[in-house]
Design a protein around this nucleic acid. Sequence first.
DNA 1: GGTCAAAGCAAGGTTACATCA
DNA 2: GCTGATGTAACCTTGCTTTGA
Length: 276
Amino acid sequence: MCEKQRHRASKTINMVHEDGLSLGLGYGGGGGATTTESKLSSDGHQKQQDLQFKHYYEPSLTLGRPPDDSNSVVSSFSNVVNTSAPQAVKRERDDVASEERPAVSSRVSDEDEDVGTGVRKKLRLTKEQSALLEDSFKEHSTLNPKQKQALAKQLNLRPRQVEVWFQNRRARTKLKQTEMDCEILKRCCENLTDENRRLQKELQELKKIKYGPSSTPPIYMQFPAAATLSVCPSCERMISSTGGGSGDNTKAAAPFLIAPKPTHLYGSFTNSPAAC
DNA sequence: GGTCAAAGCAAGGTTACATCA
DNA sequence: GCTGATGTAACCTTGCTTTGA
C-alpha cells in the first residue's frame, strides 16, 4: 500500500507539471487550484456562481436503470476502509451527519453491505436521484455544506456521496470541455495547414509569372518564400523584402539580382507601411 | 500583519463494480 | 454464460486558496 501510494504520489507530481502545458487550451477551469472561481466563504455562501460553468456542456449521463427502482437508494459503504488520518476525519464528519438521518433504503440488501469487510459495493443512482443532482448542478456546480446536507437529505444519500457526485460531475464536464477544445484546435490547425498550402501554391504561381515557366529563377529565389516576400500589415499586399514595395514587379526584380545586403533577404518586413 | 490549522476544491488519476453488446 | 468495453461511484494524493483563531 505504501509503495502504491508513493507511486501514485510521484505520478501526481508529474501530472502537475503536465498541467502547465494544458493551459494552452485556454478553457475556463484550467491551471490547477489557482483558477478556482467558486469558493465558499466562512458562512458557507458561494462567493461567485460558477463562472466556469456558464456554458457547460451536457455530457450524456447514461444512467443504467436499476433493475428495481422501488428500493432505490444504495448507501453501502459507510464503513469503507479509510487509511489516511485526514481522510478519516473527513469521513467521520460525514458519517456523523449521516447518522442524523434514518437508515437509508438500499437497492442491495442489508447483508450486501459488507460492513467492516472493506469490500466496496457499487451504487447506482436512480433516475430521480440523478435528475435532481443534475438540476442542482445546473444551478451551481459546487455546493456549500448546507446545500450538500439538504440535497443529501432530499436524495436519501450521505453528504459524502453528494460531494463525490459533484466532484465527478465537475471532472466529467471539464473532460468534455477539453475534448471540445481539442476538436477546435484540431480544426484550427487543419485550416492553417490548408491556408499554408494555398499560399505556397500561390507563391509558386507568382514566381512562374515573374520569371516565366522556362527560365531558371535567380539563385536568390531559391530561398524560402518567407525570406523574400512578406505582407504589408497596413495594406496586406504581398511585397518583396528588398525594398521593391508594391510597385512594378519587373522593376522590383532588379534588386534581387544585386542583393546589396544579404540581411535584407531575411528581414521580415523592411518596407514602411506608408510606402503602400 | 504574520502564522498556522482546518476545510474545501481541482487535478489527474486508480479501483471496483454494473451494465451492455 | 462468459468476456471485453464502457460508464461511473468512490477513493487517493498533492497543491492550492480561504478563513478563522
